[in-house]
Amino acid sequence: MTLHIETFLDQVKERGEYNSEQEAERAARVVLALLGAHLVGEVRAQLAARLPEGLAQILLNPLQSAEPLPPERFVRATAAWIEGATEQTAAWDVSAVLSTVADAAGDDLLGRILLQLPAGYDLLFGHPQPT
């Protein structure tokens, strides 16, 4: 079952403590575009199927990434794409969006997503994994 975009963005807005849905949507679009570059195949398709349609398209047509970015560089890349962002605000943006994505994905799919990502992304998704 896919979420409605308003529901998804309301969760991001609440978690990110944004003043408007536009801010939440901007963060969601940038983070999903970067995330999409890190996921491949079935896992990316299954995650897209659980996201609102407009956001799923962003995940499926991502920004290109030459290599998977470690979590701190993912946050830095997010800051570079959001006007006026700092690494601190970008970390907040990433966390707000990815924790909402984690809820939409569910534990099983999230586990498979994390297998495709460099170590440390579990913290960005708000689901620390036992080491």
Rank of each mutant, 00 (worst) to 15 (best):
L3C: 01
I5W: 01
I5C: 04
I5K: 14
I5T: 14
T7A: 05
L9H: 02
D10E: 13
D10N: 06
Q11C: 01
V12H: 01
V12Q: 07
V12W: 05
E14I: 02
G16N: 05
E17I: 07
N19A: 14
S20K: 04
Q22H: 12
Q22G: 04
E23T: 12
A24V: 01
E25Q: 11
R26G: 06
R26A: 10
A27D: 11
A28M: 11
V30E: 12
V30R: 05
V31N: 13
V31A: 11
L32C: 03
L34E: 05
L34F: 07
L35H: 12
G36I: 08
G36H: 12
V40F: 03
V40T: 15
G41L: 15
G41S: 12
L47Y: 06
L47E: 00
L47N: 05
A48P: 03
A49E: 15
R50W: 00
L51H: 11
L51V: 08
L51W: 11
P52N: 05
P52Y: 09
E53C: 06
G54Y: 01
A56M: 10
A56H: 12
A56Q: 13
Q57R: 15
I58V: 15
N61Q: 15
P62T: 05
L63V: 14
Q64N: 14
Q64W: 11
Q64T: 15
A66L: 15
L69R: 00
E72W: 04
V75I: 15
V75S: 07
R76K: 14
A77V: 08
T78F: 08
A79F: 03
A79Q: 10
A79L: 00
I82G: 04
I82P: 07
E83M: 03
T86A: 06
E87K: 04
E87L: 14
E87N: 13
A91D: 09
W92P: 02
W92N: 14
W92H: 15
D93Q: 09
S95G: 12
A96Q: 10
V97H: 02
L98K: 06
L98V: 14
V101T: 11
V101G: 09
D103F: 13
D103M: 05
A104H: 14
G106N: 03
D108I: 09
L109A: 09
L110C: 00
L110R: 04
G111E: 05
I113L: 11
I113E: 08
L115N: 02
L117W: 04
L117M: 12
L117S: 06
A119L: 09
Y121L: 08
L123R: 14
L124K: 06
F125H: 09
F125Y: 09
Q129Y: 00
